[in-house]
């Protein structure tokens, strides 16, 4: 991965839309990264950001080398 960038992985609906080897610049929040990728929801399902295996706030500032995972999050069922 290019220095100063963050890898982004999507699951469920987001997997196809993101494709493989997607990265975004570090230094922005998780919310800003998702907005730049136009991936606010997963087929209408809200998404939760996970960085390096830990659930984070949307205001988390992405660091170089971070692994951002976007998890569809079920509310009911």
């Amino acid at each position: 991965m290019e220095t100063g960038r963050v890898s982004v992985t999507g699951f469920g609906f987001l997997k196809e839309r993101l494709g493989r080897d997607t990265t975004v610049p570090a230094g922005q929040t998780a919310a800003q990264a998702v907005k730049s990728l136009h991936l606010e929801t997963a087929g209408g399902l809200p998404v939760t950001p996970v960085v390096n295996g830990k659930v984070v706030d949307w205001g988390y500032v992405l660091q170089p080398g971070d692994r951002l995972q976007l998890m569809p999050t079920l509310g009911g069922g």
């Binding site: 469920g12 209408g44 659930v55 995972q69 569809p72 999050t73 079920l74 009911g76 069922g77």
Partner: peptide
């Protein structure tokens, strides 16, 4: 677009992601 998740798989989709999120 807005309920595609329910069309594609529905509620069982969420279990594995819950596991991954802890």
């Amino acid at each position: 677009e807005k309920a595609g998740w329910a069309v594609e798989m529905g509620t069982p989709m969420g279990l594995i992601f819950m596991e991954q999120m802890g």
